[in-house]
Nucleic acid binder design. Structure first.
Lengths: 147, 147
DNA sequence: GCTACATCCTCTAGTGACTAGAGGTTCAAG
DNA sequence: CTTGAACCTCTAGTCACTAGAGGATGTAGC
């Protein structure tokens, strides 16, 4: 009933992204019409909405894959689901802490810049010498703040 | 005076990362000893410290490249530097807003889970229906929160 | 039926900032 | 002189897409 373009419009997921999700096995391979173009139904639409929403909340695709698998078994305990959601919550909280520290440091640095010459620029000084930082920002690995 | 391993130990930047920075032209090509191994001096060390610190504060490598170029011209106005720092601050603030919205939504979702069966799982319900969300989280594109 | 033109198809490669690994060479200590 | 750590280059992988080439199909108006 739905072309890939229509499905894209309805879910807000871009066409190449839908194909990508199919390619990595997150969406089942849909039927095709005579010309070989994909046709979707409302089940695909719900599944894609679920994926989109979970992505918006920062869940990685592997977690979403697992959530989808778990949600297909309605009588099971939802412990596993809860665990994934809690893990994601903890991730986000961790990132928030880091990002807040980073924010404080940047703000401090920018506030101290008197906008003279490069020679006296506080931004360059602070970047060159970690000792000029407040003690509250640590090495932030991308893992901490990546989405 | 410094092998790549020593430089790594002194700066906290991993050896392959140092080679990567050289490859993309962020660090100048260092001299080599007879055996072809890289040898660094204190100038390299300062430059690498600068890069590391800027990375810790979330500056993208392209911005760091620009900051390094600007810092080589000490008599210039530091306007351009200030602009980069302010842009980064704005970026971080934007990410904070998004991440906070995301955090609230996740917390709400997890709190509502009564841990019964999948069928009644609030997490699955909310993920499947954006309408169940508080109105404060929007589509978050990776650009918003990526580091 | 014909002509545009939008939409679709597959495939490959690029993004950012690294990280991992293969397969080999050089250095430093004992 | 041997051992093993540290170094070298090169390629490919990570995550979640995005962009583009080059071509096929679908649809609306005439």
């Amino acid at each position: 009933m739905l072309s890939i373009g229509k499905l894209s419009g309805l879910t807000g997921v871009k066409v190449p992204t839908i194909r990508y999700y199919e390619q990595i096995g997150l969406l089942p391979k849909p039927e095709r019409n005579e010309g070989g173009q994909r046709i979707y139904n409302n089940t695909s639409r719900e599944r894609l909405n679920f994926i989109r929403h979970a992505r918006e909340l920062g869940f990685p695709l592997d977690d979403i894959r697992e959530l989808l698998a778990l949600s297909d078994d309605p009588d099971q305990s939802c412990e596993a689901i809860d665990a994934i959601a809690k893990r994601q919550l903890a991730e986000v909280e961790h990132r928030l802490v880091r990002l807040n520290a980073l924010h404080r440091e940047l703000e401090r640095m920018v506030a101290q810049c008197t906008c003279g010459t490069v020679q006296t620029c506080r931004v360059i000084q602070v970047l060159g010498d970690h000792g000029l930082c407040a003690a509250d920002h640590q090495k932030i690995v991308s893992h901490d703040i990546d989405q």
